[in-house]
């Protein structure tokens, strides 16, 4: 299945992309997606614990099972206002 992944702020600087399409096995979770990204970007694994994850624009836990076409975003601690 294909997942759309969005990166913002410091995570975007680290990964080098604002948006990416990632292929995952059916039944994969957010944790599996993180593991795949960490393999390509060593520092991502260090950053991951401080990130929130949204799936289809709602904050969701790491064990969330992903589905074809989901939009996942990695969200650093917010600093708006």
């Amino acid at each position: 299945m294909k997942i759309k992944v969005l990166f913002f702020a410091s995570v975007r600087d680290l990964v080098g992309d604002a948006e990416r399409v990632v292929s995952l096995e059916d039944g994969a979770t957010v944790t599996d997606l993180i593991a795949g990204l960490a393999a390509a970007h060593k520092r991502f694994i260090e950053m991951a614990p401080s990130l929130m994850v949204s799936v289809n624009q709602e904050y969701m836990p790491r064990d969330t099972v992903l589905n074809e076409g989901d939009e996942v975003a990695f969200i650093p601690p917010v600093s708006g206002g």
Partner: peptide, 12 residues
């Protein structure tokens, strides 16, 4: 404004 600073995905 306090809530905005906690939950809204915006970065400075």
């Amino acid at each position: 404004i306090d809530r905005l600073k906690e939950t809204v995905p915006v970065w400075k």
